[in-house]
Nucleic acid binder design. Sequence first.
DNA 1: GTCTATATGGCGATAGAC
DNA 2: GTCTATCGCCATATAGAC
Lengths: 207, 207
Amino acid sequence: MGNSIQTEDKILFTAREVFIREGYDGARMQQIADEAGINKALLHYYYRTKEKLFTTVFERVFTEMLNRIFSLMEEQQSLEVFLNVFFREHITFLLSDPRLPAFIINEVSLHPELLSNIFGKFSFYGIERFGMLVEKEKEQGLIAQRTDPLQLFINILSLSILPVVIKPIISNVLQMDAKETETFLRQRIEILPEMVLASVRKDNSKK
Amino acid sequence: MGNSIQTEDKILFTAREVFIREGYDGARMQQIADEAGINKALLHYYYRTKEKLFTTVFERVFTEMLNRIFSLMEEQQSLEVFLNVFFREHITFLLSDPRLPAFIINEVSLHPELLSNIFGKFSFYGIERFGMLVEKEKEQGLIAQRTDPLQLFINILSLSILPVVIKPIISNVLQMDAKETETFLRQRIEILPEMVLASVRKDNSKK
DNA sequence: GTCTATATGGCGATAGAC
DNA sequence: GTCTATCGCCATATAGAC
C-alpha cells in the first residue's frame, strides 16, 4: 500500500541475501525482485542501477563486519580474556554464515575500488585499544617485547576467518562430512586462545 | 597453421588468466578469445561450453595449488626447518599472484560441486609426513602432547594465506600504500616460524 | 509507488564457408 | 582448424499506464 520504507528495507534485505549467495556478477535483478516479492521495475525505481544497489549493500555488509570485529576488540581486561571472548564470538558468528566472509574477500579483491568510499563509517577505537592492551602486557613482562600488535591482530583474524572460509575444501579434501567439519572448526574456539597466548609468551625459545 | 596443440595451450593459458582475474561469472568468452588472439568460435571448437573450459582450468589450478602445498609439507627434518621453508616459499608464491587464492576460495564456496570430481588428482603424502613429524617431536618432548597435527596444519595455512588474500583491505583500512603493505606481509616470513613454534612448545602455561 | 510491456544490448553457442 | 555471420536468449534498464 504505497509503503515505501517497508519496501526499501525489504529490497535491501533481499539484495543482501542474493548478492552474498551469488556474488555481484552471479546475482540477477530478477532473482532479487522475485525473492522480495516485487518486480524488477521497482528495484530500479529505488536503486537506479544494479551497481548502485550493490555498493549500498556492500558498504553495509562490510561496515557491519568491521564494526563487529572492532567492537569485540575493545575488550580491555587482559589478552587472555580477550582471546577467549573473541574466538568464541567471532567463530560462532562466521559459522552461522560461512558465505559472508568469502563474499567480502572476493568482492574486495575483484573490485578494490569499492573500498575507497567506505572510510569514516566505522570506528578504529577497538584496534587502538587492542594495541594498548598488548603494550600493557609487554610492560608487565607477560608477553615478548618483539610482539607487533598489528601482526598479532592479523594472526588472530587469520586463525578465525580462513578455516571457516575454506570449509568446503577441508570437508572434501579431508573427507569429512558436514557435521564432522563443523565439529572440527568449533574445536578451534577452545584450542586457539591458548595457542595464541603461548605464541607471544616470553622465553619460549632459548635463542 | 592448423597447429592444434599450440592453440589449445594458448587457450588454456589465457582462460586461466581471465577466469582468475574475473571469476567464472565475470569472465567472458569474447575476452578470452581476444586475449588469446583467436575468435570465439574456436573456443567452442576446443571446449564446447564455457563451463567445460572453466572446470578444466579450475581443476588444474586447484590441483597445482594443493600439490604445491603438499610438496612443501614433505620436509621432514624438523618442525623448525619445515616452518622456515614453508612460510618463505608459500608466502612468496602467494604474493606473486594474490588473486589466485581469492579465486579458489570464492569459486569453491560458490560452486562446491566443482570439488567432487577432483579427487585422486593429487598426493596426500605430504600431509601424512607432516603428521609423522609432529608425532616424532611430541615423543622427543619438543612440543605439547595436546597438539593436533591437523589443526596445526590449518593454522599454518591460515597464517600464510589469509593476510595475502585480504591485502586490499589491510591496505585501505590501515592506510598503507602498496609498498608498505607488501613489506608488512613479507615481514611475516620472518615472524611466523618462531610464533608457530612457540605456540606448540611445552610448558608455556602453568595451568 | 507499483505494475506490464518493451527497448537495447551483450552473452554463449552454432552454421557454414574456406 | 579457423574464420565470419548470426541465432536465440536473457540481462539491465526504461516508458508509460494506473
